[in-house]
Design a protein around this nucleic acid. Structure first.
Length: 363
DNA sequence: AAGTTTCGCAACCGCCTCCAC
DNA sequence: CGTGGAGGCGGTTGCGAAACT
């Protein structure tokens, strides 16, 4: 039944191809074109599996292939397409003339994945790690200190000193149009003034992509001297820090699920409205008026371990310049209808079923 | 200069769908 | 209609080159 095997799998040659073998494939294809690859080894005089011949041709010998480095435009296209459709390398490669799915896959695995990781972005979801951990903390009910301490919060902190938060200038990067802020502030915030604690933070800011803004700005903005995080806002009353709980309706229900309920931890995790925040030193203020900031989220935790220190995690994006459109715009116009339909579908789903897309389409 | 580690990428592996038999 | 190979694809590996110690 079925077809006969294309070759004697046990006795075909494997491993690197020689120039002579390459020449045989090239000669065969130039004479007969591409057809049934199972016949190629026999007709071209090669002791190789037909599948291996096809791979050698499509990934290396094809005359239309580029063998030079990926351009910044190609890189941005890969990033944007991967963010949208995930690791569908063949679809991504179709948008990059002269590149194979293997090229794109290798470039992703060796360069882009690390690049994103170093920028504080999860290469799978393309979201900032801090956002993922925050969301995970809310979903699982884990106290967020665990998440932050484990993955994000490595900054040194001094407590019971005046509030300080420096704003370092990040390094330049071609993809970088905005800067991400992820900061954990420590101190006993509730009922305290800024002079009663200090937060230092000298870490360079992490760059981030414009694409993340769209999903995060709906609840965040900054205007003049007030920074708003959803229902929370920071204003600049001199030398005063006031953080007060929002109304109970603003509490995140899921965050109240505490896996450690059986312990003696006094679980007070909740969301707050931050009515005021300021610094005794304007040059080191958390928010300086002249910096355009688009914030994404903030989590405040009160003294989960009765250490006398509350924690505030602030995430935001500083718009560095007028955002140029990604090369995706150009490439999409030339994209084949399949990819376009996927992108259109995802956009439509994002509008109609954002929860579904977040949950099931995190490639 | 030699040894070790990391990087880059070609090639292979294994799974899935399609389709010839 | 069932079987199993071809073709396609994404994931992984192995090895030579480059970088580092």
């Amino acid at each position: 039944m079925g077809r006969p095997p294309c070759c004697d799998k046990a006795n075909v040659k494997r491993g690197p191809w020689t120039a002579e073998e390459d020449a045989k494939i090239l000669a065969y294809v130039s004479r007969h074109g591409i057809g049934n690859w199972t016949l190629v080894p026999q007709k071209a005089g090669l002791n190789r599996c037909g599948k291996s011949c096809r791979l050698r041709w499509t990934n290396y010998l094809r005359p239309d292939l580029k063998h030079d480095n990926f351009t910044p435009e190609e890189e941005e296209c890969i990033l944007e397409l991967h963010r949208t459709i995930g690791s569908r390398w063949s679809l991504i490669a179709k948008q990059l003339p002269g590149r194979t799915d293997n090229d794109v896959k290798n470039y992703w695995n060796t360069k882009l994945k690390k690049k994103l990781f170093n920028m504080g972005i999860d290469p799978v979801t393309h979201k900032p790690f801090s956002q993922i951990f925050t969301e995970f903390g809310k979903l699982s009910g884990l106290p967020n200190t665990i998440n932050q301490n484990a993955f994000v919060n490595t900054e040194p902190r001094l407590e019971s000193e005046p509030f300080l938060l420096s704003q370092e200038v990040p390094h330049a990067n071609s993809l970088q149009m905005i800067e991400q802020y992820d900061r954990t502030l420590s101190g006993n915030f509730l009922g305290k003034t800024a002079s009663q604690f200090q937060v230092t933070n000298q870490e360079p800011l992490q760059p981030h992509f414009l694409s993340e803004i769209s999903s995060s700005t709906s609840s965040a903005s900054i205007s003049n001297s007030t920074m708003h995080f959803g229902s929370q806002s920071f204003s600049r009353e001199p030398s005063q820090l006031q953080i007060s709980p929002s109304s109970p309706s603003a509490w995140n229900e899921s965050s109240l699920v505490d896996p450690f309920l059986s312990t003696d931890i006094d679980h007070k995790e909740e969301e707050y409205i931050i009515q005021g925040i300021s610094s005794p030193n304007n040059s080191l203020a958390l928010v300086q008026e002249e910096i355009p900031l688009i914030a994404s989220a903030s989590i405040i935790q009160t003294d989960l371990n009765n250490t006398g220190n509350d924690k505030v995690v602030v995430s935001g994006f500083e718009l560095k310049s007028e955002p140029a459109m990604y090369s995706m715009e150009a490439s999409a116009s030339a994209a084949d209808s399949f990819v376009e339909s996927i992108l259109a579908r995802d956009s439509q789903m994002q509008l109609e079923f954002p929860e579904l897309l977040d949950e099931f389409c995190d490639y």
